[in-house]
Design a binder for these strands. Sequence first.
RNA 1: UGCCAGAUAGUGUAACAGGUCAACACGCCUGACUCUGGAUCAGGAGACUCCAGGUUCGAGUCCUGGUCUGGCAGCCA
Length: 566
Amino acid sequence: MVISGVGEDFIRDIIIEDLKANKNEGRVVTRFPPEPNGYLHIGHVKSISLNFGVASEFKGICYLRFDDTNPTKEEQRYIDAIKEDVQWLGFDWAEHEYYASDYFERLYGYALTLIKEGKAYVCDLSQEEIREYRGSLTESGRECLYRSRSIEENLSLFERMKKGEFEDGACVLRAKIDMNSPNVVMRDPVIYRIIKASHHRTGNRWCIYPMYDFAHPLSDSIEGITHSLCTLEFENNRPLYDWFLDQLNIHHPQQIEFARLNLSYTVLSKRKLLELVEGGYVNGWDDPRMPTISGLRRRGYTPQAIRTFCERIGVAKTNSLVDIALLEHCLREDLNRRAPRVMAVLCPLKVVIDNYPEDQVEELEAINNPEDPLMGSRLIPFSRVLYIERDDFREDPPPGFFRLTPDGEVRLKHAYYIRCEDVVKDERGEVVELHCSYDPRSRGGWTRDGRKVKGTLHWVSAQHALEAEVRLYDRLFTKPSPEEDPDFKVSLNPESLKILSPCWVESSLKDAPIGSRYQFLRLGYFCVDPDSSDEGRLVFNQTVPLRDTWAKIEKLQKEKRRRDGG
RNA sequence: UGCCAGAUAGUGUAACAGGUCAACACGCCUGACUCUGGAUCAGGAGACUCCAGGUUCGAGUCCUGGUCUGGCAGCCA
């Protein structure tokens, strides 16, 4: 029952203690309760992973419950998207798909019980008046005269609310608790409001809807939840959560709060993500730059990488900001194992092998994944005209550069050693073509003479290569915590998307299915974007670049030069 | 001048009911290896555990008092 290795946290500690004490007869029941008013993002995965993880570790069960108590904000399409995302992540709620709206009748009954016991009343105060009467953080509130209405009157009024006799906002049902409570949440909170709007599941059956504070604990109780895990901002609401359950004297789950995930260089709030979508700052909820599940999926993230990440960040009560580098590390770790290697040239530079026969084509063997021999190998065509990466040639190489240079020799991966013999430039002095010679003895990328050739380049045969569009992504924001600005959009990264075209990829990618992931050798991981078409249009998304030691060295060199240069 | 919560290397988490040199991961730095400057491997730097007192043979862990940070005044969740 105790988890091996990592995965211990204060919540699991509590559950272990509860189990020892035989609380809940040894059952562990959790739930993931999204409101269907937006798309899931990686912050939600922390909660999903916790709830489903805890349940499975303790031989319990986790439900998926839609918290759909506000018809003005919720939509069926969000429910569909949420289900797809949770499923894609690999979590299984089996037949336990529940809706708070399924409990509306029972919740209404509980409200009647409270009224009958003199613990709830209908209040006619306007929204502004309620706010005034509530007092402030430092001053206690005041009781209004509606608070002393008779039970009969409350019953009849509430009935009329339900029947639709009043307009939206005309009155509300409130719990009668304590207007002087130091906790503002307890100052007679609203538990039912009138909303004459069609609900995505109950249609027009109801015109009164329960508030979260009322619906949530009762839904948890109805379902027999044992541990109700939620984020820190609900800490203040816990006394109210407990109050309803105590007053109604029904099954009482334990609410436990943990810190939500914050990730550097992005925002994780539905409201802000919606703003990015609606403001056209990104191309929809599934834009590969978005931290939404659908965005990450389109970007090429694997469910496993995301789940591993959520396990490694741990669960605690301190507000924290997790370095996105950890997410990227988990991603690379997973992709390194599973992604087949292929060759692709993003910024092409033409290379002509002068001593290679004009119309000869050779098929060379290339291993698909050195991390996994079982993935086998494939044949790739080699011919006289090739493309290599522009960055892989320097006419005037900086120290430590061991790629192609005038008169220098490098290895073409899986192919031959080549030597640069001539550099062709256009009228502006731009290098447009390289003339090289190859060493026939080095076929396969190796010679017996013990020659040391340090640089190895990826390449693609010009006549065989497929044209592709490649989309490069960078962090969405330029600051680690964009939310610290009054307008988080000021630190949006203007270079978060770069479109490269034409790029050239090896011919084996011809029928690569949408979503399939590859390592473009020496460049990074890429996946096929849905914008690709059957007619041969190929679009790749950069999922994450490979660690690039040379880029780091060169950056340091440049910085040093700038400093020394004064 | 309210209530609640939190504070451990750059970042995130540990340290089991006070007891080996405060651990692990990411990141960073070295080096080895390598047909990916990838991966892998080996090593290293980095924390007076928010502060000040106290209890104790012994405190990150307990007590007292501070400081700082976060949350709360929707008919949102």
